[in-house]
């Protein structure tokens, strides 16, 4: 058991950034019980989720994320000024991602640094940010949304059907390690 712990420590220290894990997990509770910031007094807890085709995405400081369908994601992408973040593993990102999306794998050790760096870039906290993963029961996008919310972003939108749905719609994708 101790030998296994020593091997685990050594292998994690020697691992590359995409294979390394943070020692203490910073994974928030699973969906359904999002850890929220304190809701401002008088703030309504019920922010309606945008419907398909809706083009207005108001901030929702009362909850970490709002799920949006593919039509809404496509309209946000068409605007050109909305940041898209890919929560899947970097290897999956390299194989194909939504055009202009940035890699933010929640399971790799540098995700918290990336969130901090993203905040330091000076993005407007109430501007929409779209996060996605593999759709289905994938919750990586929700985990990333939670991290962004805790970092101070009030308008994180989770594209719940994720990259498979985007591909099915024939929308623009890119391969490789950069957006």
């Amino acid at each position: 058991m101790i030998a296994a712990a020593v091997c685990a420590i050594v292998s994690n220290v020697l691992a590359g950034p995409q294979r390394r894990l943070a020692w203490a997990g910073t994974i928030p509770p699973s969906s359904g019980t999002p850890a929220g910031r304190t809701t401002p007094a008088g703030q309504s807890a019920a922010t309606p989720a945008p419907s398909a085709g809706e083009t207005s995405f108001p901030p929702h400081p009362d909850k970490p994320w709002v799920e949006i369908p593919g039509d809404a994601a496509a309209s946000l992408h068409a605007r050109g000024d909305v940041v898209f973040l890919d929560a899947r593993r970097t290897a999956a990102y390299r194989e194909g991602h939504i055009a202009r999306a940035r890699p933010f794998s929640v399971w790799e050790s540098d995700v918290d640094d990336k969130v901090r760096a993203f905040f330091a870039e000076g993005h407007e906290p109430s501007a929409p940010i779209l996060v996605y993963c593999s759709g289905g029961d994938c919750e990586d996008s929700h985990i990333l949304a939670q991290k962004l919310f805790l970092a101070g972003f009030d308008n994180v939108l989770v594209y719940k059907d994720g990259f498979p749905d985007w591909q099915k719609r024939g929308l623009s994708t890119t391969k490789g390690a950069s957006p």
Partner: peptide
């Protein structure tokens, strides 16, 4: 959540 990563590192070596 805080233990997930440690378990993922340790169990395979065991």
């Amino acid at each position: 959540g805080g233990v997930v990563n440690l378990a993922a590192l340790w169990i395979p070596w065991v």
